[in-house]
């Protein structure tokens, strides 16, 4: 997959470009939207949703890379690399990195 370094993207592009979860840095925040989970298997998508990782939520990366740990509200979930690399999220520039 092609990854555009964020420095090359304009503000507008940053809003629309999705990157896989595995490429977020520690502490970075990102949005999950209606298309983020479509590449996952049905069972995994349902489980993630029920765990609280649903479309239109904001997540924070607690441990970056693969596998990674993300936090949504009060829930922390560990995802193995094969799932995390299929979840495409929109990094929030507005959200300060922790």
């Amino acid at each position: 997959m092609v990854v555009i370094p964020s420095t090359l993207m304009g503000d507008g592009a940053a809003q629309s470009k999705r990157i896989p979860l595995t490429q977020l840095a520690r502490g970075q925040r990102a949005m999950i939207d209606s298309e983020s989970l479509t590449t996952l298997a049905e069972a995994d998508r349902c489980l993630l949703r029920a765990m609280g990782i649903h479309e239109s939520c904001e997540l924070k990366v607690c441990k970056a890379g693969a596998p990674c740990i993300i936090e949504v509200e009060r829930t922390r979930v560990g995802l193995c690399g094969s799932v995390a690399s299929k979840v495409f999220v929109k990094p929030c520039d507005g959200c300060p990195a922790a």
Binding site: A43, M51, R76, V83
Partner: peptide
């Protein structure tokens, strides 16, 4: 194999 999705308890 089914990939891992594991909640980390506090």
């Amino acid at each position: 194999a089914r990939p891992m999705l594991l909640e980390m308890p506090p």
